[in-house]
């Protein structure tokens, strides 16, 4: 059984079509990258998988059920995270918020919850940030904390919307390697408009611009990209990570 099963989905915002006839099946343990231009429907598709939106046509099943019912088994990194730099909260507290709704109860955080939050930060190689103020972290550090927040409740499916948007190239490659390390326990769906970060760890690439087409990572090349973005795009190779074999050609 596919972990995510999307069949013939149409979605429109106020009559403006965003997705048309989208089919997508993601298996347990996959690392899928959703790429495409801004406004191409990437975030919409993620919100359909989370059950935050309902398709006008077609069906979305996650773990074989309606998405909203199984939302707690998913971890989510939103595209636009809170960025009030003066909000008085530590990185650890932000991660702990990922445990909300899990028999939370009253009062303060419990010791085992704090331990779980630290472990999640540690997976992101960010345990040293635990006591720092969230608002004072750099963009890349914040992303790691927010991914830890998405991971702390032990999700089987991790949905990341533009995790590398505010991250420098080096940090982006590091982040991709960390995400690759979560395999195959956690299935990862990653949204990006930045093909430079589609690393060797990604098992399949879904290109989405209203309609969706699937590619194995090997065939991502100039003509495919210009077809997707509707204009020639200059390819920039990111070979920071040659020990892992660099990029597929």
């Amino acid at each position: 059984m596919a972990l995510i099963d999307i069949k013939g989905v149409d979605f429109a915002y106020n009559g403006r079509p965003v997705l048309a006839g989208v089919d997508l099946s993601v298996a347990q343990g996959e690392f899928l990258a959703l790429v495409g231009p801004n406004g191409g429907g990437k975030t919409t598709l993620v919100k359909l998988i989370l059950g935050l939106l309902t398709p006008q046509k077609g069906s979305v099943r996650v773990f074989g059920q309606a998405p909203a019912k199984v939302r707690r088994r998913m971890g989510y990194l939103p595209q636009h995270a809170p960025v009030d730099p003066s909000f008085p909260v530590s990185a650890l507290e932000v991660v702990l918020m990922g445990l909300m709704g899990m028999g939370s109860g009253l009062g303060l955080w419990r010791r085992e919850q704090k331990r779980a939050a630290l472990e999640a930060l540690d997976k992101l190689e960010a345990a040293d940030l635990a006591d720092r103020s969230f608002g004072r972290l750099s963009g890349g550090q914040r992303q790691r904390v927010l991914i830890a927040r998405a991971l702390v409740a032990g999700p089987e499916l991790l949905l990341l919307d533009e995790p590398t948007a505010a991250v420098d190239p080096r940090g982006g490659v590091d982040l991709m390697n960390i995400l690759a390390g979560l395999q195959p326990k956690v299935t990862v769906v990653l949204v990006t408009h930045d093909l430079g970060f589609v690393s060797p760890a990604v098992s399949r690439v879904a290109c989405i611009n209203q309609s969706l087409s699937i590619h194995p990572t090997q065939v991502i090349n100039g003509s495919l990209i210009s077809e997707l973005y509707g204009a020639p795009v200059r390819m920039v190779r990111h070979d920071h990570d040659l020990e892992h074999g660099g990029h597929h050609e």
């Binding site: 989370l50 935050l52 707690r72 989510y76 939103p78 918020m97 445990l99 909300m100 709704g101 927040r149």
Partner: peptide, 8 residues
């Protein structure tokens, strides 16, 4: 928004 997603 995130709190809502967590089922709160």
């Amino acid at each position: 928004e995130f709190a809502r997603l967590r089922g709160l």
